[in-house]
Amino acid sequence: MIIRENTRDSVSTITLAGTLDALSAPELQSFSENSALSPNVVLDLSDVDFLDSSGLRVIRGMALKKRESGGDVILACMNDDVRKVFNNTQLVRLFHIYDDLDAAVTYAETNKKSI
């Protein structure tokens, strides 16, 4: 799993590439715990080709933690396979999902102002 972080318009964007499973999920978890991220974080999932329940756990955990401190995790550009996993588990109800990274960043930026 490749994890890249950059900041766009003062919003942390985490780009994930590869497989997010039991082996790689702890990497993402420790990354999110040890990085200084903005209150609203955009997860770019365009290059995630597989996601399992461990991956869901980390993403859900990140979102719950961010929400405790008034922020959120916004998901962007998920492919069909990843969307189906979110759909099957009904996690789609929990997240704002954008099909475009710029739109997700804009939402995160404007939402930050309203916090």
């Binding site: 969307r83 979110f86 109800r93 099909d99 939402y107």
Partner: peptide, 17 residues
């Protein structure tokens, strides 16, 4: 997917691409 509270502007933003 959208959220139940999303207005049309948000729906369009979520499907911008």
């Amino acid at each position: 997917s959208i959220q139940s509270g999303d207005d049309m502007q948000t729906v369009l933003a979520k499907n911008k691409r």
